[in-house]
């Protein structure tokens, strides 16, 4: 008979978050449903837009709107799965027995952010190339997309976390995502439009600041809300 084992408290948060992050990488890397869904949707949407606008130069305002529509749909389609899949698979109990809710939230948030940034880079490159767009303010464009990824990721992860234990979790997750994402769409369009050379640079900078602030605020609140419903 062996005695109970004492926990090692050294770097416990870092170790736990890293474990969840690595678990997601292994699971998603071996069965990449989520990222493939987002990437294929992005590719099809970009090709469809470029075919529709063939021989017509896309206006920067319209182009920024279309880019955000595709980016938001791709992320809403793929990201909530990270939280909801645990309950679908029945692995939620395993996590609840062994992990703290904050670690789960942060581990999944970082994984989702990495996945969304990869998706956004692919999507933006395809979008700019296929539609022959120029980007006179690349800094605002890049930070606008990155800030948007941060904000969308935090909001969608939060929506997934809030609805994970509901019986109609997919519908609920989508319904919660909509009001959370509306302000991001507004700032995101403003930042990308400035990146494409329309509007005031100052407006674009404010939009970028708004996106990052929103993302940080949602990321900070998310783990506490998730912890509150963790074992409900």
């Amino acid at each position: 008979m062996e005695p109970p084992i004492r926990q090692d408290q050294t770097n416990s948060w870092y170790r736990e978050i890293r474990s969840v992050f690595l678990k997601e990488i292994l699971s998603e890397g071996r069965a990449p449903h989520s990222i493939l869904t987002g990437a294929l949707f992005s590719l099809i949407a970009v090709v469809a837009i470029s075919l529709t606008s063939y021989n017509h130069a896309l206006q920067p305002t319209l182009a920024s709107g279309l880019l955000w529509v595709v980016l938001l749909f791709a992320s809403v389609m793929s990201l909530p799965r990270m939280m909801l899949a645990e309950e679908d698979l029945g692995t939620g109990d395993l996590l609840r027995l062994t992990a703290r809710p904050h670690s789960i939230f942060w581990g999944k948030l970082f994984f989702n952010l990495g996945q969304l940034i990869i998706l956004a880079v692919i999507l933006c490159l395809l979008f700019v190339l296929f539609n022959n767009l120029t980007v006179p303010h690349p800094g605002i464009f890049i930070f606008g997309v990155l800030g948007g990824c941060t904000a969308v990721n935090a909001s969608v992860t939060l929506a997934g976390a809030l609805s994970a234990r509901a019986s109609n979790r997919y519908a609920l997750s989508t319904a919660i995502s909509v009001p959370l994402i509306l302000p991001i769409a507004s700032w995101g369009v403003s930042a990308v439009r400035t990146g494409f050379g329309t509007g005031f640079v100052m407006d674009g900078q404010h939009a970028v600041l708004g996106l990052f602030s929103y993302g940080i605020a949602a990321s900070a609140v998310g783990p506490f809300i998730y912890a509150a419903i963790w074992k409900s």
């Binding site: 678990k23 069965a31 698979l89 029945g90 395993l94």
Partner: peptide
Amino acid sequence: ESSLYPEL
């Protein structure tokens, strides 16, 4: 009832 991660 508790499941395992199929890919791990």
